[in-house]
């Protein structure tokens, strides 16, 4: 789902930003285990980063906003484990393995934690970039029911290409079974007034990282 609660840019009513002095990396031990499980399941290559995001975005909106950050990570991971038949609901309930599912070829080893660098999302391009820095563009007015990275506040808006960032895995395709479908990524900058109206702060500019299919020349 795209027009869901996770797409928060520009919403009102959530209140002030609450700061915590000397905040620990994890507040509870279980949070650290949830985070680490999510990382350690990566090398199994059963899902991509966007499929992981999609499993949180499709949580019921009321649950999404009431859950804490790592609760959402847990809920998302449980969903993916069940959807990929890595374990049954009865096993999660029992807290132990009751049968064998599949054996991965390679799992995350302790020494892999010495190099926790991100994966590379760059892929070969099938065509040169359509836009260059300085080009005027308009974002599309799209409302797909599947995953997208074009936020609602930046749809059907006039902006300018600031930089070409490379050709990357396309989230909108990889989450719908259409493969990596690599697309060029651009930094597109908008004036605050284009996004928020003539009454808004004239000193604000906002950029998004936009995939080429989100853009048309303007």
């Amino acid at each position: 789902m795209t027009n869901s609660i996770h797409d928060m840019g520009g919403m009102h009513g959530f209140g002030k930003v609450t700061l915590e002095a000397d905040e620990p990396v994890f507040h509870e031990e279980w949070e650290s285990r949830v985070y680490a499980m999510n990382r350690a399941m990566g090398p199994l290559r059963l899902w991509t980063i966007d499929q992981g995001r999609a499993s949180q975005e499709t949580l019921p909106p009321s649950l999404y906003v009431s859950a804490t950050y790592y609760q959402r990570w847990l809920l998302g991971l449980e969903r993916r484990v069940l959807e990929h038949n890595l374990a049954g609901a009865d096993e999660l309930e029992a807290g132990r393995s009751l049968r064998t599912n599949y054996k991965p070829n390679r799992i995350f080893a302790p020494e892999d934690a010495n190099n926790l660098t991100r994966g590379n999302f760059t892929r070969d391009a099938s065509a040169p970039p359509r836009f260059k820095a300085g080009d005027r563009v308009r974002t599309l007015n799209i409302n797909p029911v599947s995953h997208t990275r074009l936020p609602r506040y930046a749809r059907d808006k006039l902006g300018e290409i600031e930089a070409v960032r490379g050709c990357h895995v396309y989230p909108d395709s990889v989450t719908t079974g259409a493969g990596e479908d690599p697309q060029w990524v651009y930094t597109v900058v908008f004036s605050g007034r284009v996004l928020w109206g003539e009454d808004s702060d004239p000193s604000v500019k906002v950029s998004i990282e936009a995939f080429e299919p989100y853009l048309v020349p303007a």
Binding site: S32, R33, Y35, A36, M37, R39, A40, M41, L44, L74, L77, E78, V81, L86, A87, E91, L92, E93, A94, G95, R96, S97, T100, N101, K103, P104, I107, F108, A109, P110, E111, D112, A113, N114, L116
Partner: peptide, 20 residues
Amino acid sequence: SLETVLSEKGYIDPAALDAI
């Protein structure tokens, strides 16, 4: 529960979680 299940099935190594 989730960690135990994933670990018993051989998908994750708890020592790797500690290291992360």
